[in-house]
Structures are given as structure tokens and as C-alpha cells.
Design a binder for these strands. Structure first.
Length: 535
RNA sequence: CGGGGCGUAGCGCAGUUUGGUAGCGCGCUCGGUUCGGGUCCGAGAGGUCGGCAGUUCGAAUCUGCCCGCCCCGACCA
């Protein structure tokens, strides 16, 4: 009830009477209060809400459908790259987590721990854990599954013929974060975690990068989110990993969002879990393992990349519905005819495909006013809205509105042309959203070579209520953790990744690999890294 | 977990300073009227005032403890 309280502008919800000035469906706007805007978009689109459990969200049907699409597409991509799904326990014995030193240190602070297996009546009529039912060894609710899956891998792998072992699991994990935000950081979240074991280092490294590329392809082609990919610095690595690679995206407030990670684990987890195999010469070897994951955070990234001051904007390839159709009635005489045309149109469109799936068509027959429906579907981000009224009926056309273009993006299309035009428009929207996001990212991605400019770039003009500022600074870094943390302490800016290849968009890419001097200490540097504030 | 703010109907709020048995707008339901970027009129339903304990004849209002949410920081996918 209090989430709107600190908003900078008066908040109204629902309909406002006699509104003359153009107003946005979401208040505050992005420029007024980005964090608040984000929450309002999530709510207005009916994606998710806070639950009765602290830090945990309820993902509502419209939000879950987005996740299901993410799941469906990625699952196909994982299978196409040779992976199989399996499922491992929610609980991890504490001792498993302790097997890898850095891993424990990284996760110890944020673990939910199960210590009892029974409740009994307490003194005040409530329930208390039964002291007699205390577990011999506490179970940790998985924050990630390297160790429990490693235990299985150790049993499954005996010979080099058992490798590579390419496994993925779709699961929920729990990380007891201190501060949560819907989709971006929740105590429990949904994700997939790939875990693979290989006979050689080269093969495991190749796998790590291959899956990073899968993520990048998925983010750009389906979510229409341009990403920069590359290795993390040591301080940003996954606990226990030898190398961590990430895809990083720029949100509309110009902060970076780590949208997916892929880890080369070397032999550290194989050592900890005992994943050994006999090679062709009969020698015992430790396997080389990888792990990689993306989570429901992607939905947060999707929201913050494309949505506008009227709410959610969804790329067609991931939208729960591509098209929504509703009738506009005037009087009763054309009602039946319009209704029949709506049915007919929906039927015609539903047998078509857009890219890799059937066209999803919603028909909204509720007797709400047309304006209500219009705003509702705008806020939900449906790519195309089709209205059919008496005038259209007479003209043999439908009124089609594009979500990415606002009120001007309205077009009258003959019914006969819809089967051809709808997929074309969806393609145009998908491409436009990516192009727009890419242009936005490029506009705020700059090469910075001196500290004063760097500091100014990352310092808001209004300290009390920081405006959108900064972006990606491509700057030189000598490689020392000291210089890295100096920047972090001074500006809350971190090195997002050290990109070496695969940046979409020429402007950002062409100044990466050139010699220069560290932005902090002035020592020599061979290439630039990406500095940014991040989520 | 540290600092700050806040919990009153589904949502947004007033009422709390000065205790007297809860109100407004939107939404929702019904009837009519409208319907192409948020129609209009009328009638109605809906609240253990975050929880527990206390003070009092009487508590949304005063006191104590607890819980939750939001913002900033620390931590992180």
C-alpha cells in the first residue's frame, strides 16, 4: 500500500476525468522516477506482485507466460546444442556446499537453512520446531546446484566415454538477498542452470563460450536486447569459478544489467565432488566442468529495455499474445456482423506462424468501453491491437495499432491483407525494438580516457534525486584489483566485462582493442573494458 | 543488516497533532446511456484502521513490542 508514497509526482490510477493534457498511462514517468516507474509497469501489466512471503514474488499469468516463452525457446536452443534436461534436489547437505572453499564463502551469507523436519505445538498455541526432530546435518535450500549435481556427476562419470556430460535443469533457487525487487532480485527465483563435464580444458572452455553465445543470441534475437559479452574481472567472478563470462545489457536508466552468466569452473568443482574418469591411456583424470544460467531476471531486463511511459512493450517473439482483437459497437444493428468478423479474423490469424510459433491471438469480448480496453492492452504491451467497428465493417478493413509507435502508429488494413500484413508488422516491431535499444545503448556508450571526464560521466547533476546519467564507459584498466576497487568505492561503478568479441553495433566495438593508459593509475593497458553502474 | 520513510476498502489517499465508534476519488456490482486514445447519470457492495499487549468509560488516534513495504547504503543473477 505504501509503494507509491515517495513518488515525486501526484499519482492517479485508473481513469481521470476530463483529462485535457496528454498524460501517460504510467506515472511517474521514466524521467521522473525510474525505480518507481519500473514497479508501476510491472503492476499495470499485471506481471507479478509481492507475496505474503518476504522477498518472494507471485508471478501472475501474463508475467509467467513471458517466462514460459523464454523457457520454451532456450530449452530448444539447449537441446540443439546437445544438452539434456534432468532434475536434482532442492536441498543440499551443508557439507556439500563446504567442499569448495571459495564457493562456500560466496554463498554462506545468503542461504536458507533447514534444520528440523517436524513441528510440534508450542507454548502459545503456535507451532515450534520439534527439538527431537533436529536434522543431524542441516540442509541448505539450493542457491545454485554445482555441488549437488557434482555428486551425481561423480557417480555418472567413470570413463572418457561418458564425456562430455551435458545437463541442464529448470529449477527454482533461493538466495537470501537483503533487498529485493520484482524480477530483478527476489529471494526465490526461477532459472535454468546448465552443468557440463568434459575431458579436456579446451573443450570445457569452448562449451563455456558456446553457451554464452547462446544467451547472447537469445537476448538479441528474441528479447531484442543488445548485449555485450565478455569475461568478468576476478572480483566479479562466480564463487569458485576459474573464469566467469557474462552478457551485459544497458537499461533505459543507463545502468547495466547482468543478464546471463557462463562459468568455466576448471577442475575445482570436479576436485571437490570427485568427478574423475579413466582416459584412453588408462590414467585417472579430473573432469573439467562448466555451469551457466539465466533467470527470471531476464523479464526485468525485458521490461527495462523496451517499456515506455505508457507501460510494457513486448517484443513479438516473446510476447504471450501477438495480437489482441476487440469489437467496437455502436448501436445494436452491426453487433452480430462485427462479432462474426472478429471470430473470422481470429480464426484466420491463428493458423498462421510468426517466426517459430503459432500466432497467438487474444479476443477481448468484455463489454468494457473501447478506451478502457485500449489502455489495458497498451499497458500489457501486446505488440498489435486490432479494433473492428462499424466503419471498418463497411470499408472491409481493420484498425491496427502498433505498440511500439504510439497513437500515430495506426493503420487501416483490409481484412484480406491481414494474413500477410500482421506477420510483417510483427517483424517490423521486433526489428524496431532491437534497433531502438541498440541506438540507445550506442548513444550512451563512450570511450573515456581521463579520470575527470570519467568522474563527470558517472556523477549525476542532481545529487538528491539523481537523473538518468552515465552509461557504458569504455576505458582502459591496468588489470589491478586495486584500481578496480578505487573506482567502485568512489563512484559505485564496476567493470561489467572485458569484451573481446561479438559486440553488435559498430560504434561500441571499434575502439575496444587499442592500447592506452589505466584510467586510475596510468599504467599501460592493451584494451578497454566496460565500466558502468549496475543492478 | 545500518540509516530514513510508511502501513486506514482492490488501488491512491484524508482522518491521528487535540481519543468519542471511519470517510473521499478511482476501481468493482446493478440499471440506463455511451463506445474508434481513459463516456455520462443513478443506485449499491466492500474495512477486525498491519499484528499483539497496555492506558482509558471509550483507541485508527496515546504507550510498548513485533511484522511488513518503500528509498539510500552494504551484498548479489
Amino acid at each position: 500500500p505504501s509503494i507509491l508514497r515517495r513518488s515525486a509526482v501526484p499519482i492517479t490510477t485508473g481513469r481521470t476525468m476530463n483529462q485535457k493534457a496528454p498524460r501517460t498511462a504510467i506515472q511517474p514517468t521514466r524521467a521522473q522516477d525510474y525505480a518507481e516507474w519500473y514497479q508501476q509497469v510491472v503492476r499495470a501489466a499485471d506481471l507479478a506482485e509481492n507475496s505474503a512471503v518476504r522477498g518472494c514474488m507471485v508471478i501472475k499469468p501474463w508475467g509467467y507466460a513471458i517466462w514460459e516463452n523464454i523457457e520454451r525457446v532456450l530449452d530448444r536452443m539447449f537441446k540443439d546444442t546437445g544438452h539434456k534436461n534432468a532434475y536434482f534436489p532442492l536441498f543440499i547437505p551443508k557439507s556439500f556446499l563446504e567442499k569448495e572453499t571459495e564457493h562456500v564463502e560466496g554463498f554462506a551469507k545468503e542461504c536458507a537453512v533447514v534444520t528440523h523436519h517436524r513441528l510440534i505445538a508450542g507454548p502459545n498455541g503456535g507451532l515450534i520446531p520439534d527439538p527431537k526432530a533436529e536434522l543431524e546435518e542441516p540442509l541448505v535450500v539450493r542457491p545454485t546446484s554445482e555441488t549437488i549435481i557434482g555428486a551425481s556427476f561423480a557417480q555418472w562419470v567413470k570413463s572418457y566415454r561418458d564425456l562430455p556430460l551435458l545437463i541442464n535443469q529448470w529449477a527454482n533457487v533461493v538466495r537470501w538477498e537483503l533487498r529485493t525487487r520484482l524480477f530483478l532480485r527476489t529471494t526465490e527465483f526461477l532459472w535454468q542452470e546448465g552443468h557440463t563435464a568434459h575431458a579436456t580444458e579446451a573443450e570445457a572452455r569452448e562449451e563455456t563460450l558456446k553457451m554464452l553465445d547462446v544467451y547472447a543470441t537469445f537476448a538479441e534475437e528474441f528479447l531484442a536486447i543488445p548485449v555485450i559479452r565478455g569475461p568478468k574481472t576476478a572480483s566479479e567472478r562466480f564463487p569458485g569459478a576459474v573464469d566467469t563470462f557474462a552478457i551485459e545489457a544497458m537499461m533505459q536508466d543507463r545502468k547495466a544489467l547482468q543478464a546471463g552468466t557462463s562459468h568455466f569452473l576448471g577442475q575445482k568443482f570436479a576436485q571437490a565432488s570427485g568427478i574423475r574418469f579413466l582416459d584412453a591411456t588408462g590414467t585417472i583424470n579430473l573432469a573439467w566442468t562448466t555451469s551457466w544460467g539465466v533467470s527470471t531476471r531476464l523479464v526485468g531486463g525485458l521490461i527495462m529495455t523496451h517499456s515506455d511511459d505508457d507501460g510494457l512493450v513486448l517484443p513479438p517473439r516473446i510476447a504471450p499474445a501477438h495480437v489482441v482483437i476487440w469489437p467496437v459497437y455502436r448501436g445494436d444493428d452491426t453487433k452480430e456482423a462485427i462479432s462474426a468478423v472478429i471470430d473470422d479474423t481470429a480464426r484466420t490469424l491463428r493458423v498462421l506462424n510468426f517466426e517459430d510459433r503459432r500466432l497467438e491471438v487474444e479476443v477481448d469480448r468484455r463489454d468494457n468501453s473501447g478506451g478502457d480496453k485500449n489502455w489495458e492492452w497498451i499497458k500489457k504491451g501486446v505488440p498489435l491491437r486490432i479494433e473492428v467497428g462499424p466503419r471498418d465493417l463497411a470499408a472491409g478493413t481493420a484498425m491496427v495499432s502498433r505498440r511500439d509507435l504510439g497513437a500515430a502508429g495506426k493503420e487501416s488494413i483490409p481484412f484480406a491483407d491481414l494474413p500477410k500484413r500482421i506477420p510483417e508488422l510483427l517483424k517490423a516491431i521486433q526489428d524496431n525494438l532491437f534497433a531502438r535499444a541498440l541506438a540507445e545503448r550506442d548513444a550512451y556508450t563512450v570511450a573515456v580516457d581521463d579520470r575527470a571526464t570519467f568522474d563527470a560521466f558517472f556523477t549525476p547533476k542532481n545529487r538528491d534525486k539523481p537523473e538518468a546519467h552515465g552509461g557504458f564507459a569504455l576505458s582502459h584498466w591496468c588489470g589491478s584489483p586495486k584500481c578496480e576497487s578505487a573506482i567502485k568505492d568512489a563512484l559505485k561503478v564496476t567493470i561489467r566485462c572485458i569484451p573481446t568479441y561479438g559486440i553488435t553495433g559498430a560504434k561500441a566495438a571499434d575502439r575496444l582493442v587499442e592500447a592506452g593508459k589505466c584510467i586510475v593509475c596510468g599504467e599501460a593497458s592493451e584494451r578497454r573494458v566496460v565500466f558502468a553502474k549496475s543492478y
